[in-house]
Design a protein around this nucleic acid. Structure first.
Length: 415
RNA sequence: GUGAGUGUAGCUCAGCGGAUAGAGCACUGGACUGUGGCUCCAGGUGUCGGGGGUUCAAAUCCCCUCACUCACCCCA
């Protein structure tokens, strides 16, 4: 090991893994674009206050998980911990609402949270997300879930389920939270230390506690559904009906609460049973645009943890080296080899060459180790005859071919 | 931020107070000088994560530190 190592929670994504990353990203992009979502690229560095306002001042993300520092002018800046706040900012700042009734965006890129790393969790991680502004119909919620579902299916991610809940509108959410706070205060002695804190900061989070005794204590706690107004209830019922009709594997989870303050009405999460981990989360945020200084416009979106999706796919398979290994023996062959390679790349045939002086045995051993299917051999003998040898590494069969037929023959042999 | 576990060869790991620190795979050279995989032979495989301490003696025990892994909090 050298002197330098990567910072904690950071990672290198090596070429072997890149194909699968590209596939995951491309699939999300493709499906989202088919629903006419458009890419938006927002800065990685933003003002700290954007997230205090957006995510919530008391959330864990803001209080202890942001990479924050002062720039040279003393401004408080942070590496973005999530994408929604930035996209909302851009939506308002660029007055998109003047141009479009419904505005659909997708984004892609690194996010940063100063957490302790563990399985599926890094300090720099990657998210793909969509945000749809301007629609309050449940169909927009359904569309977001549908996009996620189609993409995950297309990627052959198995064994996942959508957990769905409603937090209600501003009024319902407030009433319920106050009720729960009162309820918990009465039984506070039975709760664990973490939960005692939660009662003050975010009472609904007590639902997520894994402590058995806490679980018992709140077993009979009334559900949010007893507090939903008619409109919220209808919104949720219609969405549930939509999901059923579209054969989406979902489960109503009354105790699903998400840690970002801005969510209202629909919240959901994609939970993968194989890894026992959530790979995506999202929901509706009808007041955020207004709270951040824009007009009163509802919105819904989700974010996917790409690292986690890639991890699920990575266990499955790896690809073989598809390029051709070009063996060049001697100086003359190298000179001539460049002419041939030029012709190959013009015909989109991938070729790898090693220009070091090596014996043919060594070259073949290397090609074998790399898992090459075909080798191209060019040495003095071949130059004299005006030919090149194609060797199939699986069968061992070699054939001499005329220079002019190289592209044609390689195409045939690559099939 | 809290808790647990692990750091020894390129990789996977054994050694857990005693001599010059080991195995498998990989790697390098040769048998085989323009033909890989198979076999055989010969070999480097090393700040034992770093620093300090205990001891005649430390990879081994103790303390500190760093890194990784997992769990909690929280989240993708």
């Amino acid at each position: 090991m050298g002197i330098f190592t990567k910072l904690r929670g950071m990672r290198d994504i090596l070429p072997e893994e890149i194909d699968i990353w590209k596939k995951v990203e491309q699939t999300f992009i493709e499906i989202s674009e088919l629903f006419d979502f458009r890419e938006i690229r927002v800065p990685i560095l933003e003002s700290k206050y954007l997230f205090e306002k957006g995510i919530g001042r008391d959330t864990d993300i803001v209080t202890k998980e942001m990479y924050e520092f002062k720039d040279k002018k003393g401004r408080d800046v942070v590496l973005r911990p999530e994408g929604t706040a930035s996209v909302v900012r851009a939506y308002i700042e660029n007055k998109i609402y003047e141009k479009r009734k419904i505005a659909r965006f997708y984004y892609l890129g690194p996010m940063f949270r100063y957490d302790r790393p563990q399985k599926g969790r890094y300090r720099q991680f990657y998210q793909f997300g969509i945000e749809c502004f301007g629609g309050k119909s449940f169909y927009f919620d359904g569309e977001a879930i549908q996009i996620l579902n189609i993409t995950l299916e297309k990627l052959s991610i198995g064994n996942f389920v959508f957990l769905v809940n409603s937090l209600g509108c501003k009024n319902c959410k407030f009433k319920y939270t106050e009720y729960i706070k009162g309820y918990l205060k009465k039984i506070v002695d039975k709760l664990c230390n973490d939960c005692k804190l939660r009662v003050k900061v975010n009472p609904l989070r007590v639902f997520d506690c894994k402590n058995y005794s806490c679980h018992q204590s709140i077993e009979n706690i009334p559900s949010i559904f007893d507090f939903l107004c008619d409109e919220c209830k209808e919104h949720f019922d219609l969405l549930a009906n939509f999901l059923k009709k579209n054969n989406i594997n979902f489960k109503i989870e009354h105790k699903l609460v998400r840690g970002l303050d801005y969510y209202t009405k629909t919240v959901f999460e994609v939970f993968c049973k194989n890894q026992d981990i959530a790979i995506a989360g999202g929901g509706r945020y009808d007041y955020l645009v207004k709270e951040m200084g824009g007009p009163d416009i509802p919105a819904v979106g989700f974010a996917v943890g790409l690292d986690r999706v890639v991890a699920l796919l990575n266990q499955e398979k790896r690809q073989k080296d598809e390029s051709i290994y070009f063996i060049l023996l001697g100086e003359q062959a190298k000179i001539k080899g460049f002419d041939i390679m030029r012709e190959l790349i013009e015909n989109k045939i991938k070729v790898e060459a090693d220009y070091e002086e090596r014996s043919i045995s060594e070259h073949l051993r290397i090609a074998n180790k790399y898992g090459k299917k075909l080798c191209l051999i060019l040495g003095e003998n071949e130059i004299k005859k005006g030919v090149v040898v194609i060797k199939n590494m699986e069968t061992g069969i070699q054939e001499e071919i005329k220079e002019k037929e190289i592209v044609k023959k390689l195409r045939e042999r690559l099939k």
